[in-house]
Computed example of a mutant assay.
Amino acid sequence: MRYRSRAVTGLALLASSFVASAPALADGEVNIYSYRQPYLIQPLLDAFTADTGIKTNVIFASKGLSERIATEGANSPADVMMTVDIGRLDAAVQLGITAPIASETISENIPAQFRDPVGHWIGLTSRARVVYASKERVDQDTITYEELADPKWRGRICTRSGQHVYTLGLIASMIAHHGEEKTEEWLIGLRDNLARKPAGNDRAQVKSVYAGECDISLGNTYYMGKMETNDKEPEQKEWAASVRLIFPNAEGRGTHVNLSGVVLSKNAPNRNNAIALIEYLTSPKAQEIYADSNFEYPVTPGVPVSERVKSWGVLKPDSMPLSDIAKFRKAASEMVDRVAFDDGPAS
């Protein structure tokens, strides 16, 4: 039996969907729990089914999937879980819901820096944490993360919550490079340079630059593509046109990147099909589909970025393994609270 959910956003609804339909255990299927919205991954899944004959069944939720798999235990129908951010991938491992993947195909396709050293998670695409700069009010075309604490930016920076996974990833990378003491000094300087309390998503920060509330903001690269092509909300095209992307630390260690990725469920009922899916998602064909449809960077070497992404400039990614950065996420979260980052510059 096949089950599918298009917009399940709460655990209660997610639970009821399993009561209403039995898990798919047929040889020709694979069951996917996804934090990634179905429309983002459907082109990939359709191509996988066309090439392999294996059906894909998707449950989508915005939160709680890792905990759901842990609660379901040995009876979980989940074969794989797709998510974003190294923090969520690492959290799944810490919950004990994943199994290591031993695959020569995956090892050949995905560089070691984008894989868990033991194989518990696999990166599928990357996105860079960049600066969105006003075309009218910012002249420079280079910047570093460290510079964001410079007083010259006082009252000119917008960002989302310090406790959001994207922000924690950046702070954790700063700790990995500079240690906790220097990173805390930096975070205080960044806090004091904020134009307002952190609030909203990455697109909201660009809207604030467009409105003149701040001059630069922090955001993921793919949001530029989402705004530039948003025909349903054309005002977002105006926001995007008001800014340009600057890749921090491009002349040094490189720009901080994060991942979308996948894990194999420890109790996967369709294990072979699950591994086949993960191998497929790391293939050049699938990586190119991802790159074209989601404005993200392929992690399989040799796969080109889309023309739109290429137009934003050249990405030199930080080469530090994300598994090393993930170790400092707890320290990053504690630091955000300690300096009252989310209280804004008045704190």
Score class of each variant (00 low, 15 high):
residue 244 R to L: 12
residue 115 R to N: 04
residue 295 F to A: 02
residue 166 Y to L: 09
residue 238 E to L: 15
residue 310 K to L: 01
residue 328 F to R: 08
residue 129 R to W: 14
residue 260 S to P: 01
residue 30 V to P: 14
residue 111 P to K: 13
residue 131 V to T: 11
residue 251 E to M: 11
residue 325 I to K: 04
residue 329 R to G: 06
residue 36 R to H: 03
residue 131 V to N: 00
residue 254 G to Q: 08
residue 182 K to Q: 06
residue 36 R to T: 10
residue 282 T to V: 10
residue 87 G to N: 11
residue 140 Q to C: 04
residue 54 I to A: 04
residue 175 I to V: 08
residue 92 A to Q: 07
residue 44 L to C: 03
residue 150 D to A: 05
residue 64 G to R: 07
residue 89 L to V: 04
residue 221 T to G: 08
residue 302 G to W: 14
residue 344 G to A: 06
residue 6 R to V: 06
residue 64 G to M: 02
residue 154 R to H: 15
residue 97 I to A: 11
residue 294 N to H: 03
residue 233 E to N: 11
residue 190 L to V: 14
residue 151 P to S: 08
residue 256 H to I: 13
residue 73 G to P: 01
residue 174 M to R: 13
residue 86 I to C: 02
residue 144 T to V: 13
residue 218 L to I: 11
residue 339 V to C: 13
residue 13 L to Q: 05
residue 249 N to M: 00
residue 153 W to Q: 02
residue 10 G to A: 13
residue 62 S to W: 03
residue 306 S to G: 07
residue 128 A to R: 04
residue 162 G to S: 12
residue 132 Y to D: 00
residue 260 S to M: 10
residue 78 A to L: 04
residue 287 Q to E: 04
residue 123 G to T: 02
residue 242 S to Q: 04
residue 346 A to V: 13
residue 227 M to N: 11
residue 84 V to H: 04
residue 127 R to V: 09
residue 329 R to T: 10
residue 285 K to L: 02
residue 171 I to C: 07
residue 73 G to W: 11
residue 86 I to Q: 00
residue 110 I to K: 01
residue 53 G to A: 05
residue 127 R to H: 07
residue 132 Y to I: 03
residue 25 L to R: 15
residue 82 M to S: 05
residue 281 L to F: 02
residue 44 L to K: 05
residue 17 S to K: 12
residue 82 M to Y: 12
residue 323 S to N: 06
residue 150 D to L: 07
residue 262 V to I: 14
residue 291 A to K: 15
residue 88 R to Y: 15
residue 177 H to P: 02
residue 35 Y to C: 11
residue 300 T to H: 07
residue 253 R to G: 12
residue 233 E to M: 14
residue 278 I to K: 01
residue 194 L to S: 05
residue 316 K to W: 03
residue 138 V to G: 08
residue 170 L to H: 06
residue 178 H to V: 02
residue 289 I to P: 01
residue 20 A to W: 10
residue 24 A to M: 07
residue 71 T to Y: 04
residue 90 D to K: 08
residue 272 N to K: 10
residue 23 P to I: 08
residue 151 P to N: 01
residue 42 Q to Y: 11
